[in-house]
């Protein structure tokens, strides 16, 4: 009887335990599957579809799909990587991603995943949406232009911080992030830099003020190693608790938008 608790990922045998999804088991085994809305610290969400794999011949999101014994999972194939690249291009044209002026550049999972998958252009026509930013908070800035609607901040604020600072509103292509304030401004919420939600954004939306571009080009998270070789990027926040942001001299406050 084959009672193996293993599946194969691109031919490699991956052990898994009850309750693990494909990506969780793969990560535990040191294997990289591209992903954006998945963060090992949170319950899988399954919305970005970057983690799509072929499991026994059928495409499925590996962050939510549970493996079965001896399941054959294909991930790093041309077909799937082409699809992932197209999904990335969709995310790029849907928002406004001008990396040269983005503080997250070099530490951004969207960007690093696009490098990983050789995305040379956004391919589609840009949507150029109009998304004003929110600079109301004294210490944090929200640049909605880069939001990929991954819901990590929503989950972190609700499930870890117990605050519900963030939520999604709208529907379809008009989906957007909102904050928990009548004014619609972050300054009028109980958001704090100590919140988990302040440090989970995989892209450059939730940014600490006055510390941008602190890490020189060349030593940012994904400069040295591609994302596939960077263990558990976990929303690698350049201005999060792990950075030396606190030691930087304060700059004059940016004028509120």
């Amino acid at each position: 009887m084959s009672q193996s608790n293993t599946f194969t990922l691109d031919g490699k045998t991956i052990p898994y335990s009850e309750g693990q999804t494909i990506i969780q088991a793969a990560m535990a085994a040191g294997e990289y599957i591209p992903h954006l809305c998945f963060n090992p610290e949170f319950k899988p969400h399954g919305s970005c579809k970057l983690c799509t794999v072929k499991a026994n011949g059928r495409q499925t999101a590996s962050c939510t799909q549970h493996p079965a014994p001896d399941m054959v999972v294909e991930s790093d194939t041309k077909e799937i990587n082409d699809e992932r690249r197209t999904l990335l291009q969709m995310l790029f044209v849907e928002g406004n991603h001008f990396c040269p002026s983005c503080e997250k550049s070099g530490n951004c999972q969207l960007q690093a995943t696009a490098y990983q998958l050789n995305m040379m252009s956004p391919h589609f026509d840009q949507f150029f949406p109009d998304r004003p930013l929110d600079a109301s908070h004294p210490d944090y800035l929200l640049d909605f232009n880069r939001c990929i609607l991954c819901s990590l901040c929503v989950r972190a604020s609700r499930d870890v911080d117990g605050k519900n600072v963030f939520a999604l509103s709208g529907r379809g292509i008009k989906s957007h992030l909102i904050v928990n304030a009548k004014s619609g401004r972050l300054a009028d919420t109980n958001f704090s830099g100590d919140d988990k939600a302040a440090h989970v954004c995989p892209v450059g939306v939730i940014l600490k003020k006055r510390v941008g571009f602190a890490i020189p080009i060349g030593s940012r998270s994904f400069d040295e190693q591609p994302i596939s070789a960077t263990p558990h990027p976990q929303g690698a926040c350049p201005v999060g608790p792990r950075s030396n942001a606190a030691t930087l001299p304060p700059h004059p406050t940016v004028k509120d938008a």
């Binding site: 001008f98 040269p100 956004p122």
Partner: peptide, 15 residues
């Protein structure tokens, strides 16, 4: 370059 590929800085006027 970025400008040829996604409009870059000049495209910041698009909104």
């Amino acid at each position: 370059g970025a400008c040829a590929i996604n409009g870059g800085l000049p495209a910041q006027r698009n909104h």
